[in-house]
Every structure is written in C-alpha cells, then in structure tokens.
C-alpha cells in the first residue's frame, strides 16, 4: 500500500499546503545586537526578562512569542486549537510551562535544535490532514539555561575553542492555517538520525552536518527537484565549521553547493560578536525563520525556501557514558504559490 501523501522515501506532500498566516520572534540582548535586529519583534533587555530564573525567562519568552504571533492576527491564545512546541531543557519545561499559561491544547516535542522544523512539519500534517484549522508551532532556547544544563556553570572560567557555538537566546512561533494568505508549506522531508561517530561536544556542527546533507539529498531524490529550484537552502545551526563540512558532503553527494546555501547559525550573529563558529539552539533557526526569512518571503525577495533545521540528539548522560553525538535534520519547503 502506498501512502497517499508521501513521495519517495521520506518526503511528505501537502495536498492543500497550509498557510503560514502569522509569525513572531523574540531574541536576547546579544542577538539584538546582531545584523537582524530590526527583523525581530522583541529584543529582551536582559536575560532574566523580569523573572526569577533563566528557565522561567525562557518559558516566558516562548509564551509571549506565541501570543505575539496570534495577536498580529488580532487573535488570542484561545483561538488556537493546538500548540506544538519544544526546547532544549530536560523534560522540555520551557514549552510545557508556556503551554500551562496560554492554555492551548499542547503536544510537546523534542528534536533538540531541529525542533522548529519538526513542529512545523507535524503542524502542517495536522492542518493538511484536516485535524485542525489553526495550529501554532514554536521553539525556544536560552543561552544560560542551555549552558548550565549541557556545559559549565556560567561563572566558571572556561576557554572556548574555535569550533564551539553560542546557544542563541531566542524563540520563534508560527501560526499555521488551512485558509488564509501568505507563504505555504508545500513539502517536508523527515530526517533520519545519522551518527558519524563524532564525540566532541565543542564541535556540534560536525556532528550534525552529515544529517543535514542526508536529509537534503533525500529531499531532492524524493521530490525530483534540483538545488537551484530554491532561492535559499538554509540549515539550522551548523555554524561555520558545520557549514563548511556540509558543503564538502554536498559535493560528495553530487549536489552542487550553489551560492543559495546558508546556515542560520552563521547568519544570526556578525563575526565580531565572539560566538566562534556561530549560533545554535532551537531558537537560532526559530527566530531566523520567524524573523528575517519569513519577512523576505513575504516581500518576495525569496519565493522558495528550503528550511532544514538541524539537531544534536545527545544528553550530558550519554556524553559521559562515551556515546557519540547523533544528528538529525528535517527539511521543510516554504513557498509563495
């Protein structure tokens, strides 16, 4: 039996492509000093966001971004039928606690930093499948909550290496609708977990690049599209090192790394911000999509975007037990049609 809405091995085809009816992004102070400041809806003045802890701040950030995306359509949280969200913290507390406040039916997701694409593709399936009319998809990360969970206490004197990345303090939320106007989600390719045996937690780009290359290759195989079809192919948070590696892998796979390829982790900051290889975290690809990228699609500067959010699926426990770092990437095609 062949699935009706599937093409090739891993790609979903949306018969009635859902509309991205609204979007919103919120970033931290550092991201607000970067090149895209005017594209974000809200720039936090500090990392606590008037809360008692960084974890509470991250949850508030996600919650407010969801509300903001809805309020741009003059809607309230109760008008949304489903919230799909995830973050990096243990038991995805930022998302669950945000869902507690907005009181929208909630499905929590974990795809590490690939969560924005994961939520977007699941949301699109649910809307296209006719289960919901209006779904909000969102993801967040916070530099200091991630640091203390995955790395070191913030005040410890640790020297960063050039391949390390900076977890973005950012959140992005999108409102998907069956009806409306705006860019539409046409295809999505669900990625496989790929592990090339990388163990260096200070070089996550290297752990995730093979997954990104695999998903992108599969996307073109499944759809019959060519890389030049897209105005921009953008990976989530490979950073400069991972992006260079992905470029090499594209050549190996026979995909020409045309100038239309970039990476949110590389784009989010400018080189002088001391982020080494670039940005990372769910919010990195989340705020770039729900900020500059969708603005450019709306204005027609980009008409066809392949958004490939990438995630590293390890935990401190797996790292201590000597496990390598598995990567994942999901691709979502967003088009003006």
């Amino acid at each position: 039996m062949v699935a009706l809405k599937k093409m090739g091995l891993q790609t979903l085809v949306f018969a009635e492509p859902p509309y991205i009816a609204s979007w919103a992004s919120m970033v931290g102070p550092k991201e607000g000093e970067g090149p895209w400041a005017k594209d974000f809806d809200w720039i936090m003045e500090d990392y606590l966001f008037a809360e008692a802890s960084w974890e509470k701040a991250e949850s508030k950030m996600l919650r407010e971004t969801v509300k903001l995306a809805l309020s741009k359509m003059k809607l309230e949280p109760k008008d949304a039928e489903l919230l799909l969200a995830g973050d990096l913290l243990n038991q995805i507390i930022s998302s669950s606690f945000a869902a507690r406040e907005v009181s929208i039916p909630f499905l929590g997701l974990y795809g590490a930093c690939s969560t924005m694409a994961e939520s977007l593709l699941i949301g699109s399936m649910l809307v296209d499948g006719g289960f919901f009319e209006r779904v909000v998809t969102a993801a967040s990360s916070h530099h200091y909550t991630a640091e203390r969970q995955f790395r070191f206490p913030t005040e410890q004197g640790v020297q960063k290496v050039p391949s390390s990345q900076w977890t973005a303090t950012a959140a992005g939320a999108l409102v998907l609708q069956k009806a409306g106007v705006g860019p539409r989600v046409t295809y999505a390719t669900v990625g496989k977990v790929i592990d090339m045996g990388q163990t260096d937690a200070a070089n996550m780009g290297a752990a995730m690049a093979p997954a990104a290359a695999d998903t992108i290759k599969t996307h073109f195989q499944d759809t019959g599209r060519v890389p030049d079809y897209y105005d921009l192919i953008v990976t989530g948070d490979l950073g400069a090192v991972g992006m260079a590696l992905a470029g090499e892998l594209f050549v190996k796979e026979g995909l020409v790394p045309s100038p239309n390829y970039s990476d949110c982790g590389v784009l989010l900051y400018d080189g002088l911000q001391g982020v080494d290889s670039g940005g990372s975290g769910c919010g990195c690809s989340g705020c770039m999509l729900a900020g500059p990228l969708l603005r450019k699609i709306k204005s027609g500067e980009i008409n066809r975007l392949l958004f490939v959010a990438t995630g590293a699926l390890m935990s401190p426990t797996s790292s201590f037990q000597g496990e390598s770092i598995p990567g994942i990437a999901h691709a979502v095609a967003i088009e003006n049609i």
Binding site: F152, Q156, G157, V158, Q159, V161, T199, D200, A201, A202, N203
Partner: peptide, 11 residues
C-alpha cells in the same frame, strides 16, 4: 594538554 590532546578536556 587542553589544546593539543583530544577534545573535551575540561577544567
């Protein structure tokens, strides 16, 4: 020891 041996040598 941090710069030249294997990655992941922490303080």
């Amino acid at each position: 020891a941090m710069d030249l041996t294997k990655p992941g040598i922490t303080p």
